[in-house]
């Protein structure tokens, strides 16, 4: 039994079958990649997992609880964090404030009225926030406005914001899309480092086979909304069906 169990999920957009009977089982403390050509339904699946889309049928169980029908913020509170294709951060706030918000969300839940005491009065939150910034080597940039960061640092910051909540599952939506090779390698290193330092389950959606094969322990291949195969990276590399779906793209 995996930490995330997706069973028989269907989603139609008008005449398009975006997801057809998708099954997926992600084991605890593994890195699971979901790959597939454009239009395979990867993003739709991810949006179902975070509560942005509600499937027409099927079930999604996370850590023994059903995810379906919950709002994105509720799903985050039960332990799923998401990293976006282009980093979603609070651009107008400082780096430190960016990290404070997930700290408050982790400690106080999705809503708590604290309109009188100053933010600086919450020393436990400050300690946690400083620790995570130190962890991703950004403590010296704490007073910078997030908008002024480089793209790589924005990615790092977003990662820190997710990690400080100690999620059980981290979803990554094409974390290296549009990056140069050097940046891609940095991101791979960052993810490897995160994986080594803590017990975390990751689910990565990715186009770049280099990223997929350097990180993942298990791979699910989607094609036209259907799961094609699920196997170890070694077996996926040589799988004839996968080669067919990618028309040779998977020859890494």
């Amino acid at each position: 039994m995996g930490i995330l169990e997706v069973k028989g999920v269907n989603k139609r957009f008008g005449g398009l079958q975006a997801l057809g009977d998708v099954n997926l089982s992600v084991q605890e403390n593994t890195v699971h990649a979901i790959i597939g050509p454009n239009g395979a339904g990867k993003s739709t699946l991810l949006n179902v997992l975070v509560g942005k889309l509600i499937p027409d049928s099927g079930s999604v169980m996370f850590d023994g609880q059903s995810v379906l029908g919950r709002k994105p913020h509720e799903i985050n509170q039960i332990g799923i964090s998401r990293v976006f294709q282009t980093p979603e951060i609070f651009a107008d706030l400082t780096v430190f404030e960016n990290v404070l918000i997930p700290c408050f969300a982790k400690r106080d839940g999705s809503f708590k009225m604290q309109a009188i005491g100053a933010v600086t009065g919450h020393s436990d939150i400050h300690t946690t926030a400083e620790a995570i910034l130190d962890d991703v080597n950004m403590l010296d940039k704490r007073h910078m406005t997030a908008a002024s960061l480089s793209r790589g640092d924005k990615r790092r910051l977003e990662m820190a914001m997710c990690l400080v909540q100690e999620p059980k599952l981290l979803l990554l939506d094409e974390p290296t899309a549009g990056m140069a090779r050097a940046d891609t390698n940095n991101t791979i290193d960052l993810l490897k480092e995160i994986k080594e330092k803590r017990d975390i389950t990751m689910c990565i959606i990715e186009h770049d086979m280099h990223v997929v094969f350097s990180l993942s322990e298990r791979i699910t291949v989607l094609a036209q909304g259907m799961p094609l195969v699920e196997d170890t990276p070694e077996n996926i590399k040589g799988h004839p069906k996968v080669r067919e779906a990618y028309l040779g793209e998977a020859q890494v």
């Binding site: 998401r82 979603e88 997930p102 999705s110 809503f111 914001m161």
Partner: peptide, 12 residues
């Protein structure tokens, strides 16, 4: 600043 990030940070 960013409502999307807010809901994916567990804030209502």
């Amino acid at each position: 600043s960013n409502q999307t990030r807010m809901s994916y940070t567990g804030i209502n």
